[in-house]
Design a protein around this nucleic acid. Structure first.
Lengths: 238, 238
DNA sequence: AAAAATAATTGTAAAATTGACATTTTTTTA
DNA sequence: TAAAAAAATGTCAATTTTACAATTATTTTT
């Protein structure tokens, strides 16, 4: 029995902008749409919100279905609601940004035709998905300067050179190693492990992990993490 | 003719968290719900998204209907989508935070029973509206340290003491007058006007307005505007 | 006219941070 | 053993920030 009987009901979907880091650069995961219209065109992964689930649950389901992974870090980006954003039928989309460690991802189904693209070199997308990606990229850059969320793109243990490479790929610049190391360690968020990565360097770099206990307490250690001048440059480049 | 025929259609509403500044403190605008269930209970202002409008247009309509004002600054806060958040029928809510100059606001209709409450002393709200308000407050504090959006709460012309009072009310602390003035003026966002406010002080304080041309260019002058130590304190107090 | 009340501006010292650059250490390779 | 390659740590000058103070200016009140 519907109580708000006279009101307009709309289709509600979720769309996921999935970023990964392959050790060199940030990548975006796209799929080929499986049905008309625009069959075969590149798209974000998404799906309709069902009767008994929240949008967040729907996004979690969609991500799990595509990647097989649990516990993916995601956050709501924006709700896109222009009446004509979907050429088939009016659909509201709650967009989520997800960050995954590419090495944990294993494509489960050939059906999706899921492919990783460099973040700045991907094919044109259907509907307003390009706008979603652009907004997600901008928000990632902005927020990563203020919040340690880029750590979600790394494996549970990582090295300082890997972390620096990640930041350099997001901001398309290079940081002084000594200064970067001092600054990231001064946040108090990382714990040095005893073992070293001997594969990627002669001397071997110490592995680090995130200190879960300090994570929430020290979030604000990340304010001002990326120099203001660089934020200006980043903004001006868009 | 509905193209995605087999899909679930949901009610979609907007809810607006309306903040104002009365010169002393931040206030929240609430209305009394006009129909059952929960008739007479305090609530945020909201409404259903109609067939031909976006959620943003719906929020603009709702705000205009309540306040009579155009051009209200608002931004999307979050989409709340728990299946059981509305006790009548499942409804998804796209929540917006709006900032208005209390002095421009004139209540148009007694029907709404709209009342301003101090931000930290308001009655319990229906559904998940308390959660919406809390999230809006937190985001306001966080973003105001990085972006000059608090200026949206002031009249077109205002004084430095008024601006400082606003920041002090948001962060529940006091700033050094000399340093505050030096810092805010160093952003280059404000233009001093020739006339003075003679009502609120003997000497009379200069009026300022926002330099629209520099507003976007100098957004990043606001990074690090509120000291990191204060952000930590603010976070720990919640 | 003098006092009082604010506003605005400028200055200063100590502390903290930042950026550029250098040095030391650790491991593997030749 | 020495060289090479990276990682880690250190140094210093410059800059910024904060707390606090002093000064100047402008208006109203006494």
């Amino acid at each position: 029995m519907k109580r708000y009987a006279q009101q307009t009901r709309l289709l509600v979907a979720v769309d996921c902008i999935i970023f990964g880091f392959d050790g060199q650069e940030i990548k975006l995961l796209l799929i080929q749409r499986g049905f008309e219209p625009c069959k075969g065109k590149w798209s974000l992964v998404g799906g309709f919100v069902q009767e008994e689930e929240s949008a967040e649950d729907a996004a979690t389901r969609v991500l799990k279905n595509l990647t097989g992974l649990d516990g993916i870090y995601m956050e709501q980006l924006h709700t896109f609601s222009s009446p004509d954003r979907d050429s088939v039928e009016r659909t509201i989309s709650v967009a989520y940004t997800a960050l995954i460690d590419i090495k944990r991802y294993k494509q489960l189904h050939e059906d999706f035709h899921a492919v990783w693209f460099p973040i700045n070199h991907h094919p044109e997308l259907i509907f307003d998905h390009d706008a979603m990606v652009n907004q997600a990229k901008e928000k990632l850059r902005y927020k990563a300067a203020l919040h340690p969320l880029l750590l979600e793109l790394l494996p549970p243990k990582f090295t300082l050179p890997q972390l620096q490479q990640l930041y350099e790929s997001v901001y398309n610049t290079s940081f002084d190693k000594g200064n970067f190391s001092r600054k990231i360690l001064s946040t108090g968020l990382l714990v040095r492990l005893a073992d070293k990565d001997k594969l990627n360097s002669r001397k071997g770099a110490f592995y680090y992990k995130v200190d879960k206990k300090k994570y929430n307490v020290n979030l604000h250690a990340f304010l001002n993490f990326v120099p203001e001048a660089l934020m200006k440059k980043s903004a001006a480049a868009r």
